[in-house]
Amino acid sequence: MSFLRINNIGKTFLGERKEEVIALSDLSFDCQDGEFLCIVGPTGCGKTTLLRLIAGLEQPSEGDIILADTVIQGLNREATLVFQQYSLFPWCNVIDNVCFSLEMKKIPKKTRYLEARKFINLVGLTGFEKALPYELSGGMQQRVAIARALAHNPKLLLLDEPFGALDERTRHRLQAKLLAVWQKERKTVVFVTHNIDEAIFLASRILIMRDRPGCINDEIKVDLARPRDRRSQGFLKLHIKIREVLEKILITNTNNQRGAL
């Protein structure tokens, strides 16, 4: 039995004019304990919706999600989600944001701060402990959000395009750091990105989603040795392969739209 199992889930929203919006339909996949799963797909294909369902912030309209042999009902306490939007508490400084989950666990302040400093250092923000979120750039805020999620130490870490706002250099550095944490702590990670390069660098396995309605289109196992060389033959081959799949999805979409017109 796998650690996380998504069983034929569907999610339908009611739109503004009460029309049904099918965000996800008949979507299934498994995720092993300790796996680093990346999900790529066109904008609006339902990646965020999928993560929200796994986090238990939203309930599936059909199917179910099973984590460690229990069906998720209501909030998933084993998972934490790093949102695509900036989600730091604006009234807390950096260290209190990172500490938040430790405070919830009633860990004394001294221990808490010691622990939080490790994660602040990990995301390269030592010296910014007392800064308020508005004083940080978007990329820095996102790094604090990652530190906050890591400090919580959940079994399942869900990340929604967390490095989207970062420049390439910082992105590469944080990818390496995230991998180090993942390898050290043996966490299960589900990582959403629209960056193919990022997916290949990080993932044990890549799921490619298509849209209208959102479902898994392809699955690609990444068997390259770590640390991965972005210029290696294997890396580049995978890159081209994924790009082709995504292009095909886009083309069928445009054709469908033409057909509809």
Partner: peptide, 27 residues
């Protein structure tokens, strides 16, 4: 809503949610 969801996913219960998110945010 984003702050409430973040807090819940970071392990807040209803009481803590009030004290640590809803109150400071409405202050």
């Amino acid at each position: 809503h984003l702050y409430i969801e973040s807090a819940l996913l970071l392990g807040a219960d209803q009481k803590k949610l009030f004290k640590k998110v809803i109150f400071p945010s409405s202050l």
